[in-house]
Write a protein that binds this DNA or RNA. Sequence first.
DNA 1: CCTTGACCTGGAGCAACTCCAGGCTGGTAG
DNA 2: CTACCAGCCTGGAGTTGCTCCAGGTCAAGG
Lengths: 98, 98
Amino acid sequence: MRISEASETSGLSVDTIRYYEKIGMLAPIRRGSDGQRRFSKDDINWMTQLNWLRQTGMPQADMRAFAVSVHSGTKDTSERYAILLRHRTVLDQRRREL
Amino acid sequence: MRISEASETSGLSVDTIRYYEKIGMLAPIRRGSDGQRRFSKDDINWMTQLNWLRQTGMPQADMRAFAVSVHSGTKDTSERYAILLRHRTVLDQRRREL
DNA sequence: CCTTGACCTGGAGCAACTCCAGGCTGGTAG
DNA sequence: CTACCAGCCTGGAGTTGCTCCAGGTCAAGG
């Protein structure tokens, strides 16, 4: 799948996808012989998840910590869990304020 | 009232206050003979209001439109009303999403 | 008279994108 | 075969909404 379709299905803009790859939020995407990006289903799933987190306003620093933790393949999910939990309390508070 | 106290009572940071004045979100603040800003009660009220709008995430463009409309002294409040109404629907939607 | 604290300005830095110019490539149309 | 076009590429500039900093002024206290 190429970038435009990846953009539509994940909800991230084409520019944002390239930007996220550049800053290491996405693992380097596989390229075809023409040098263009080819996105796997896993890539898309991950991008869709990132889009959720982003839309709820999670800061990039946290998103990157999450990304690194996921990508490291560690079985220790406590860090991930902590990040999500912290984020949830922030969301809860924002909801109450609104 | 000077800037540090103005910051505490309005909730805007000292830097943000100066920044808002610079970009025209605040009318130019009266200065003392020493060149320092002296804030009136009206200034403070307006800044407090701005802080509310800002905390709910209203974009600066809208805030500025609102500021201009208020500052113009027009009796026609329909524009202001429209801005607030639009903002409210945005907030409602965000709340539902959360 | 010297220092201290609060204030001043102009400008740089930051987050999180977004947009743009200039260049390649693969597929289709003439 | 060649010309063209859409879609992709990169590097870099621009945008929003602040925040921080260096270097300077001024009034008041010791």
